[in-house]
Simulated scan of single mutants.
Amino acid sequence: MSILDSLTLTSTAKRIDTSPVGTARRKLLDALGLQIEAATATIKGEVFIRRVGRWVDVNGTKERRDVPVRFRPWWWKDEAGTIHLHIHYGNRPLELKPGKAAITVGAMDNLLPTLEQIKLAVAAGELDKAMTEAVARRQRVLKKPVTTAKAGKPAQ
């Protein structure tokens, strides 16, 4: 008897949601993971430095090195000492409910549980509508007016 005969084989393949909503959800989950790492380091009193692999020129040869890059936390402290949190998609905060984009966390100890709850909400698809609106808003901004070939003026 061969080793493969002792295994249970199926025709199932790994499925990844490649729809625009699935891609947006994965990007937001990755960003939330990074925010959770930063919040954990901040609570421990450590400095969080985000590092990314980049190709850099060293004495005429290119080497892949981890270099520090800018990191922007999504939380801030107001004058009263209360922690607030924005959920960003790209570089803009998501509007979670009409007219409301910030979450009041309270103390710094509540930040990690709040981020974990948001991560569960994103995985469950509760922020899909807000993400699709943010993507649509970005596409409207990036659209250029259609020009006519002869006059070079915007079409009316």
Rank of each mutant, 00 (worst) to 15 (best):
M1I: 07
M1A: 08
M1K: 02
M1L: 13
S2V: 00
I3D: 09
L4N: 04
L4S: 04
D5S: 03
D5P: 00
S6V: 05
S6F: 11
T8M: 08
T8R: 00
L9W: 02
T12D: 12
A13H: 01
A13E: 08
K14S: 08
K14G: 01
R15M: 11
R15C: 07
D17I: 04
D17W: 06
V21N: 00
G22A: 07
R25H: 03
R25A: 02
R25N: 02
R25Y: 01
R25W: 02
R25M: 05
R26L: 13
L28P: 02
L28I: 06
L29W: 03
L29R: 00
D30I: 07
D30L: 10
L32Y: 01
L32C: 02
L34V: 10
L34W: 02
Q35V: 03
I36V: 09
E37D: 15
A38V: 05
A39W: 02
T40Y: 01
A41Q: 15
T42A: 13
I43Y: 12
K44T: 09
K44M: 14
G45E: 12
G45C: 10
R50V: 08
R50W: 04
R51G: 06
G53A: 14
R54V: 14
W55K: 14
D57Q: 09
N59C: 14
G60C: 04
E63T: 08
E63C: 07
R65T: 01
D66G: 08
P68R: 05
V69H: 06
F71W: 11
F71V: 07
W75R: 01
W75I: 06
W76H: 11
K77Q: 13
K77Y: 08
D78N: 15
D78Y: 09
E79M: 08
E79S: 12
A80H: 11
G81I: 04
G81C: 08
I83L: 13
H84W: 15
H86R: 12
H86W: 15
I87G: 00
H88Y: 15
H88L: 12
Y89Q: 09
Y89K: 01
P93F: 13
L94F: 05
E95A: 06
E95N: 07
A101F: 13
A102V: 10
I103R: 01
I103T: 04
G106S: 09
N110Y: 10
L111K: 04
L112P: 02
L112C: 02
L112H: 05
T114N: 05
Q117E: 09
I118G: 00
L120K: 12
A121W: 12
A123Q: 12
G125Y: 05
L127E: 03
L127Y: 10
D128Y: 07
K129S: 07
K129N: 06
M131P: 03
A134P: 00
V135M: 15
V135C: 10
A136Y: 09
R137K: 08
R138W: 06
R138Y: 13
R140W: 04
V141L: 15
L142T: 03
L142F: 04
K144D: 13
V146M: 15
T147Y: 15
T148H: 15
T148R: 13
K150H: 07
A151D: 07
G152M: 03
K153N: 10
A155M: 12
Q156M: 14
